[in-house]
């Protein structure tokens, strides 16, 4: 039992949970009241959209790509949600479906021409931002009532953001880690040649993963306007960085289809708490992004130490 608990595999899996726990513990140390139903509800308010976007990024990383456009994509879906979806729901749903279809097309293009995803998604980030600016030139609009109602849910005992994050994590875990097609999808990142030889379509795996990322991007945008109740093309610009950091913090490897949905959710929660932690520790906001970089480097360094024992 102890041998298992200290094995590299178990340590690696525990790392995201431990880092989240440590941050929570430090916050509790500074202000015990913060770690209560009300406090957590407030502190983790924005955790839901970040978690959804992080899962989207994780899908892309699973197939060895990287999405540098997820931030502006979430911004676009937020703008559509705050305008079209609120005014003419049918048109809004069609527009959001078209966004997901566009993601599928990007995935297909990347596979078809064997393109580097960072260049393609960097280009697409301008396209999403441009469309968002056309849809909603100045910040505004209103979120549909039902979106606001969902995001404002008061769950008993456990704050809504935690419940939502848990549900997201478990659903994606079963779809990606426990289903048979999930194995194929991860295999497409781990050993594409083997998956291709076994008769699976690599084009299809890429399209499925990009489509899933697009879908979660849409959910993230909607969750975001449910909280802010208005849209803005630049509302989620920082999400691109946050989501990559979240996946890595959550134990995702950069290549090889080694990802962990539960870990990614914990990584996203850790990221959502970091600004609060810095607030409690009275660290100037200037260092907020820097702290993100520092945490990333520390976690990656720890992981190297763990992996070295495995080798």
């Amino acid at each position: 039992m102890i041998a298992y608990l200290t094995s590299p595999k178990a340590l690696r899996a525990a790392l995201p949970a431990v880092s989240f726990g440590i941050i929570l513990l430090i916050i509790w140390f500074y202000s015990p009241f913060a770690v209560s139903y009300m406090g957590l509800n407030l502190m983790l308010q924005y955790a839901v959209p970040i978690t959804l976007a992080t899962i989207a990024q994780m899908f892309i990383i699973t197939v060895n790509d990287l999405d540098l456009s997820i931030g502006s994509f979430v911004g676009l879906t937020a703008c559509i949600g705050a305008t079209l979806l609120a005014d003419t729901p049918i048109l809004g749903i069609l527009a959001l479906a078209a966004c997901v279809a566009a993601y599928v097309a990007v995935g297909a293009l990347i596979h078809w021409r064997n393109l580097p995803s960072i260049v393609v998604t960097l280009g697409m980030s301008f396209v999403w931002l441009g469309i968002a600016v056309l849809v909603l030139p100045t910040p505004g609009g209103t979120a549909p009532g039902w979106v606001k109602a969902i995001m404002g849910l008061k769950t008993p005992f456990v704050p809504f953001p935690i419940v939502a994050a848990a549900v997201i994590g478990i659903v994606v875990h079963f779809a990606l880690m426990r289903s048979s097609y999930g194995v194929v999808l991860r295999g497409a990142g781990g050993n594409p040649k083997a998956i291709g030889r076994a008769g699976w379509s690599l084009l299809k795996t890429k399209m499925v993963m990009f489509g899933a990322a697009g879908f979660f991007g849409v959910l993230s945008g909607l969750a975001l306007i449910g909280l802010t109740s208005a849209g803005d093309a630049h509302i989620a610009d920082r999400y691109t960085l946050f989501t990559i950091a979240g996946v890595i913090l959550g134990g995702g490897e950069f290549v090889g289809g080694r990802v962990s949905p539960i870990g990614a959710v914990l990584g996203a929660l850790t990221l959502a708490l970091t600004p609060q932690l810095m607030g409690f520790m009275k660290i100037p906001t200037d260092w907020q992004i820097g702290a993100l970089g520092g945490i990333l480097i520390i976690v990656l360094a720890l992981r190297v130490l763990i992996n070295r024992r495995e080798a």
């Binding site: 293009l109 580097p116 280009g123 931002l129 469309i131 600016v133």
Partner: peptide
């Protein structure tokens, strides 16, 4: 062209160029 159109075209041109150039195996 408006700011939105400018952004969209800039992005599309980059994606088009990389698509034509293609990623070498």
């Amino acid at each position: 062209a408006s700011a939105g159109v400018r952004l969209i075209l800039t992005g599309l041109i980059i994606v088009t160029v990389i698509t034509i150039a293609g990623g070498d195996k």
